[in-house]
Design a protein around this nucleic acid. Structure first.
Length: 608
RNA sequence: GCUGGCGUAGCUCAGUAGGUAGAGCAGCUGACUUGUAAUCAGCAGGUCGGGGGUUCGAUUCCCUUCGCCAGCUCCA
């Protein structure tokens, strides 16, 4: 239950004990308020701990948290020891039955049946008047809990054993750290992080909106946000061109027959919008992904091995009926645009193609300076019916993908049951500000669809053979990628992406003509420039430019006009420099051409 | 979809123990013409998320619905 904690380090070990112990204390306090509540699980987690309860008909609200905290303090003051005990299964079950602890009883049975409970007996910890089945470890005494080191955070729901068909429990989350100061630090950092929430910044910087009449999960991209999409897309198209991809354009709607053939209808119907009935018995669907369309492009002509690898790319619009409660800003939407491509290749080409794709995402991530991700090798689960049954193919393809990661020296974690139904994949997982982890990029090896779509190529020996298919989306969807970029950059984009690349600020109206001349030069070279010709005070103009997080502010006044210079004020950089306009213009062009990440300190001052 | 919480002006928030609401910022108008993060004044802006109920009267109480937030489930 405690995988989240790294037990190898002493401090972590102690923190783990602390959180684990506090979970017991909290349960004891909660039981004082709700004696009939049933206990479920109460493990330590990344920033504290939680405990799940079934309150039956007498739920608890956030208003009750202070009372629980107060009772916890009283319990801690008693300085009771944590004492370990053991019970054989039968005795434990009787003990649970007496107390109506059905969840604990279920888990006890499972522990013994699966052999996880050593010697068939179960360990219990008692502190004061509270006893809980628990593996431990714990502190020695409740008095070892530092004063003020924890805080009950929030209440939410969770399913028993994570299964939506089983009872919904009430989860109380608490923050807990080794000291009061560390707790305060964490709370302060979390508050600061919230300032970078992409939904908040998206609104403040006019990047995107959502409208109830349009529908939830259907973001409307404002002009500023559309610049971000367009710049990413432009970059991707260049990279894909250089990597030998060809672009295709396919519709966002298709007949049901297409998804029956692909297998998406039986597998993913719940995640698709319901069909539109056109004529009799002719159903059309909004597409949840582009793959089947691309397969049809492949299938449209007889293919030769000479054409392979055939790489078809499209920034495709897709629609998924995500559950209402899982929608969140741009992070999880129902309409998205994906940096998609499918690579059709021979078995011999699989590793090299996969290798190149992973290198492409490494290039993107390094350039964008996204470092806070983990690589997941998503494997199938032989015990699940979610995956196509072909053990040999799974074996081969998983081995091939693992080999690619190994050859590239990529650090990764393997996870069972996370594969696509048609093959293994490599996923790039990023956590957002709230700690919610989502897949951004993915690269999948597909050994199924070529068969389903009867895709073939004529090989050197004249035989018709099945290609392998790689599905890849290194830049994810615009929606998800940009949500992470907004938060990671705090809304301060590098010049090449920035919605407004330069704002000209004349010191007074007298210098408007000079500013206009500069603006015309810059716009003529396709720079996104605007001049602040408002009648605000100069200070206010500077403030406005800064709060809009515009990367380059060029101030022009009397001396600039006379010397044909600009005073270049970079976003959040104190030093500024007055340079000849031509020189500044050239520097700007260089930054754009290199897609310089001038929103980072090391490249913040292009002129040294 | 489920559990809990929250919806007052474009934004951030105040307020009403039931008697139809107020500030700052943003916007508009005017004055000021400014050298590095908020010049001053005036004006305008809200069926207090929507619908129903209780009441002489509802933004306030009740029901319902929509939206938002956190978590669970699910997923790019």
């Amino acid at each position: 239950m405690c995988e989240e904690c790294d037990k190898s380090q002493d401090g972590q070990e102690q923190l783990h004990r602390l959180r684990h112990s506090l979970a017991h204390i909290m349960a004891e306090a909660v039981l004082e308020l709700r004696p009939n509540a049933k206990l479920a699980f109460g493990p330590p987690v990344e920033f504290g701990f939680y405990y799940d309860f079934d309150f039956g008909g007498e739920p608890l609200g956030e208003a009750d948290l202070p009372e629980i905290e107060k009772r916890m303090e009283l319990i801690l003051r008693k300085n009771a020891p944590f004492e370990r005990g053991e019970m054989p299964l039968a005795e434990a079950l009787a003990w649970f039955e007496e107390r109506g602890e059905t969840y604990k009883a279920e888990y006890a049975r499972e522990l013994v049946e699966t052999g996880k409970a050593g010697g068939g007996s179960l360990s219990f910890y008692t502190s004061g008047g509270f006893t809980d089945m628990c593996e431990g470890p714990h502190l020695e005494r409740t008095g070892q809990v530092p004063r003020g080191c924890f805080k009950l955070d929030r209440i939410s729901g969770s399913y028993w054993r994570g299964d939506e068909k089983r009872p919904m429990l009430t989860r109380i989350y608490a923050l807990a750290f080794a000291s009061k100061d560390e707790l305060k630090d964490y709370i302060a950092r979390r508050k600061l992080a919230m300032e970078r929430d992409h939904r908040k910044l998206g609104d403040e910087l006019d990047l995107f909106i959502q409208d109830a009449d349009v529908g939830v999960g259907f973001p409307l991209w404002m002009p500023n946000g559309t610049v971000l999409r367009d710049e990413l897309e432009k970059w991707a198209k260049e990279e894909e061109f250089l990597a030998g991809f060809q672009r295709v354009t396919t519709p966002s709607v298709a007949r049901g027959a297409l998804y029956l053939r692909s297998g998406h209808l039986p597998y993913y119907k719940d995640s698709m919008f319901p069909p539109m009935l056109v004529d009799e018995n002719d159903e059309y669907y909004l597409r949840p992904m582009n793959c089947p369309h691309h397969h049809k492009v492949y299938a449209a002509r007889p293919r030769s091995y000479r054409e392979l690898p055939l790489r078809l790319a499209e920034y495709g619009n897709d629609f998924r009926y995500e559950k209402h409660g899982s929608l969140s800003g741009l992070l999880r939407v129902r309409a998205m645009t994906m940096n998609d491509a499918h690579i059709y290749c021979t078995p011999e080409q699989v590793e090299e193609e996969f290798h190149s794709v992973i290198q492409m995402y490494q290039k993107y991530y390094a350039h964008l300076r996204l470092g806070n991700f983990r690589v997941r090798l998503s494997l199938h689960d032989p015990d699940s019916d979610k995956f196509v049954a072909d053990h040999e193919a799974w074996d081969q393809s998983e081995t091939a993908v693992r080999q690619v990661l190994h050859n590239l020296g990529v650090a990764y974690e393997e996870e069972r049951g996370e594969a696509a139904f048609y093959g293994p994949k490599v996923d790039i997982q990023i956590k957002n500000l709230m700690g919610r982890e989502e897949t951004v990029s993915t690269c999948q090896l597909d050994f199924v669809m070529a068969e389903r779509f009867d895709l073939t190529y004529a090989d050197r020996d004249g035989q018709r053979k099945r290609p392998y298919i790689l599905h890849r989306a290194p830049l994810s969807t615009h929606e998800r990628m940009i949500s992470f970029l907004i938060e990671f950059y705090g809304g301060a984009f590098p010049t090449w992406m920035a919605p407004v690349q330069v704002r000209l600020v004349p010191v007074s109206a007298d210098f408007a003509p000079y500013a206009a001349e500069l603006q015309e030069r810059l716009c003529g070279d396709f720079f996104r420039v605007e001049t602040d010709d408002s009648e605000e005070s100069f200070n206010k103009k500077i403030r406005n430019a800064v709060t809009r997080k515009i990367p380059n502010v060029w101030v022009v006044g009397a001396k600039e006009q006379e010397d044909r210079t600009v005073t270049w004020r970079r976003y959040c950089v104190k030093e500024q420099v007055t340079v000849a306009f031509d020189k500044a213009f050239d520097a700007l062009k260089d930054m754009r051409a290199a897609r310089a990440m001038d929103n980072f300190a090391d490249t913040a001052l292009p002129l040294g």
